[in-house]
Design a protein around this nucleic acid. Structure first.
Lengths: 121, 121
DNA sequence: CTATTATATTACTACATAGTAAAGTGTCAA
DNA sequence: TTGACACTTTACTATGTAGTAATATAATAG
């Protein structure tokens, strides 16, 4: 379900821009026909990842936070060792340069197990 | 690449048990023929997600931390709003009941933007 | 060298599914 | 009611690829 790039892009757009209707989403896929987008949305909908609400003629689609959670949780649990490094990169991007001193201390300390091998890139 | 369940399971196994050879991995897939696993491993390898090192006749496969990072980072950035909730679930599972008092304070405070809508499950 | 174990490669098949076109449903406007 | 708009459904096609069987390579044992 999360495998398809179009579907991921749809989720991305909903995450970035908030609720959108089918036409708004279709506008982001010039190569695809709107009914194709609609079909993807129906798929995401029956997977519980998005929800729709009617507004006149339009269907407004938005992310379903609980389901996103449920989808992400087991993944995060398995790969916690790895996204710790990713997290730090994200943090550097997120906080411009606010209080650089205690970065290591405030980092999310979920996994107590060490195995903090350097990423050797 | 991360779409296929077999491939994800392979990554999971390597994350959980550390480096494994093809035979060891194949043992976890009774319905699949070993050459199929090997083929998947070659795919993961050329995608840079795993690396192999020879030990006698065996090839020992292990996760490539840097690539896992690179694969996860943009994802985490887009959906940070959502995995925050997942993170808390994970934390509850991880720390048995060590210091319950200051949980909210020590939570990973990456995204400064609020929008902390309840998951309404 | 020969046999055996451990992977890899190749050629092939079967199946899933992304995307399309066209028709169908629902809503509003005049 | 008629027409236009917004979306959904259906039937179809084409393509990608997961898995297999058979063969090939590589390393150790005897």
């Amino acid at each position: 379900m999360l495998a398809d790039p179009t579907r991921r892009r749809i989720l991305d757009l909903l995450a970035e821009r908030g609720p959108l209707n089918v036409t708004g989403l279709s506008a982001e896929f010039p190569n695809l026909v709107p009914s194709g987008i609609s079909k993807h949305l129906m798929g995401l909908r029956s997977a519980g990842l998005v929800q729709a609400s009617r507004d006149g003629r339009q269907q407004i689609y938005s992310l379903e936070a609980a389901a996103m959670n449920a989808a992400l949780a087991p993944w995060l649990r398995k790969y916690d060792r790895f996204w710790h490094h990713a997290l730090e990169q994200v943090r550097h991007l997120a906080e411009d340069e606010a209080e650089e001193g205690r970065t290591t201390g405030t980092a999310c300390t979920l996994a107590r197990g060490g195995s903090d091998q350097p990423t050797q890139q």
